[in-house]
């Protein structure tokens, strides 16, 4: 009688392993193996032995460091702006119903279906030099504004708009765990909007915010299209920098080194994401 459940558990474990086997194998083949290859390829040179010269070069080259620094702060600022922009919309959608809420949701999720190239084109047409904004300002005899096109603000604006839907969906899933009754209970005891947000809602969606930030950082750190089309040529973000080092400079070793460094930063944020997920699950128990 005891062996039967044991065999069922064993069978369940095996079928579970089989279910995850394919994605795990793909992960090993398409992600971890190339990473390992790149890592080893930048440190070990057949016939010459080990050398960390490409890493020493990256961390001693002022231009590379400026690129890394630009990437870091564009990533940080864009991630924070995405969460800050998505939060009021998420709160509105969580606690309001009706046709206006449905319209707001449709508009907020719209960027999800727009390719990056079109976002960049629209940005240039609207905010670029002699774009719609400039045309309107000139029409009312006002001076043109400095365009964010090819400035660090350019990719930030584009990336915030592009990533808003995913951030919104992640925050909405977190807010789904905050019951209307728990908010009403706080109101009933005299709490105002700010107190309810900081004392009741925010602690309950902490893990969702961390997940949203981690997801954003992972995507933004290696973003290419919008930084390439809207960002400055110098310094440049890691995505365009890697591409230019590889293609224009024909320097695969330094491009791979940049990729490994980018991966290391992303892996660190990935770890934060995994920890947040684990904490969130623990909190749900």
């Amino acid at each position: 009688m005891i062996s039967a459940p044991r065999s069922r558990v064993g069978g369940g474990g095996l079928s579970g392993l089989l279910l995850v086997a394919l994605p795990v194998l793909l992960l090993l083949w398409l992600v971890l193996w190339p990473v390992l290859q790149a890592f080893v390829g930048t440190l070990y040179f057949p016939g010459k032995g080990f050398s960390a010269a490409s890493y020493v070069y990256f961390f001693s080259d002022a231009y590379s460091l400026r690129n890394l620094w630009l990437t870091l702060w564009v990533t940080a600022l864009t991630s924070i702006l995405r969460v800050a922009a998505a939060m009021p919309i998420a709160l509105y959608l969580r606690f309001r119903t009706g046709s206006i809420a449905a319209l707001v949701q449709s508009l907020a999720l719209f960027p999800l279906f727009v390719p990056s190239v079109l976002v960049a084109y629209a940005f240039i047409r609207v905010l670029g030099p002699n774009g719609i904004v400039d045309t309107l300002l000139v029409a009312v005899h006002l001076p043109k504004l400095p365009s964010p096109y090819l400035q660090p603000a350019g990719p930030i604006i584009g990336l915030v708009w592009e990533g808003l839907p995913l951030t919104l969906l992640l925050l909405l899933s977190g807010l789904g765990r905050v019951s209307t009754a728990s908010v009403e209970a706080a109101r009933d005891l005299g709490a105002g909007g700010v107190t309810i947000f900081t004392r009741i809602i925010l602690p309950r969606i902490q893990s969702s915010i961390i997940v949203a930030l981690a997801f954003n950082v992972l995507g933004l750190f290696s973003a290419f299209t919008l930084p390439y089309l809207l960002g400055p040529a110098s310094p440049e973000m890691m995505g365009p920098y890697m591409q230019r080092t590889f293609s224009d400079n024909a320097d695969p070793l330094n491009a791979t080194t940049q990729a490994v460094i980018t991966f290391a930063f992303c892996a660190a944020f990935g770890l934060i994401y995994v920890r947040a997920i684990a904490k969130g699950r623990k909190g749900l128990r």
């Binding site: 728990s182 009403e184 209970a185 109101r187 005299g190 602690p203 309950r204």
Partner: peptide, 20 residues
């Protein structure tokens, strides 16, 4: 008057306790 300005207090069906 909104709930926070009424001399009432509600006990909810779902307890509505703040788990944190």
């Amino acid at each position: 008057l909104p709930p926070e300005r009424r001399p009432t207090a509600m006990v909810f069906q779902s307890h509505a306790l703040w788990s944190h």
